[in-house]
């Protein structure tokens, strides 16, 4: 029943045996204990579980762990290189882009992918880019500001 998989998460390669039905988010949270990736819904809407799969922002609740075999995953825990916060993390901090923090890792990972493709976005583009990440605390205004600030500091 179990499948052997080899997944590189935040630069570290893990080998594990997983049931086919285990979702990637469950693998990250329950097997690797990387609990920064959250589960906010069960219909693949809220984006709290967003991680990068081979660099592409992905809802890790809508992918089986077994599908991650051979892939490179980056989670929020892997974003700060050598303890230096990523410009997105800094910007979210400085612009008060989070309140309860639950959606934040997903929002940051989505923004990461987005800024790679669109390094100099308008406010409207940022709002559209975050359509798949729900936040119930901030009203999004400071999230948008933070993404914009991160874009500026990265360019």
């Amino acid at each position: 029943m179990g499948h052997s998989i080899k997944v590189t998460v935040n630069g570290v390669t893990h080998e594990a045996t997983v049931e086919p039905r285990m979702l990637l988010v469950q693998f990250l949270r329950e097997v690797l204990l990387l609990t920064g990736t959250h589960i906010g819904c069960d219909t693949s809407q809220c984006g709290a579980c967003t991680v990068l799969v081979d660099g592409v922002a992905t809802k890790s609740c809508t992918m089986f762990a077994v599908q991650a075999d051979g892939k490179e995953i980056t989670t929020i825990e892997g974003l700060a290189a050598n303890g230096d916060l990523h410009p997105l993390q800094k910007a979210f901090w400085e612009e008060h882009g989070l309140q309860c923090g639950f959606c934040t890792p997903g929002v940051i990972m989505s923004s990461y992918d987005f800024l790679k493709r669109n390094p100099n976005p308008t406010e409207e583009e940022i709002r559209h880019a975050l359509e798949g990440n729900y936040c119930r605390c901030t009203g999004y205004q400071n999230i948008v500001k933070a993404v914009k600030k991160a874009a500026q500091s990265m360019s």
């Binding site: 949270r29 329950e30 204990l33 990387l34 609990t35 920064g36 990736t37 959250h38 589960i39 989670t75 929020i76 825990e77 974003l79 700060a80 916060l85 993390q89 979210f92 901090w93 400085e94 008060h96 989070l98 923090g101 639950f102 934040t104 890792p105 940051i108």
Partner: peptide, 21 residues
Amino acid sequence: LKRKEDRRFITGKGTYTDDIV
């Protein structure tokens, strides 16, 4: 003032109930 609690949240180190094993 920037929020003191944010460092743990932006690095994925918050501890919500379901994170506790």
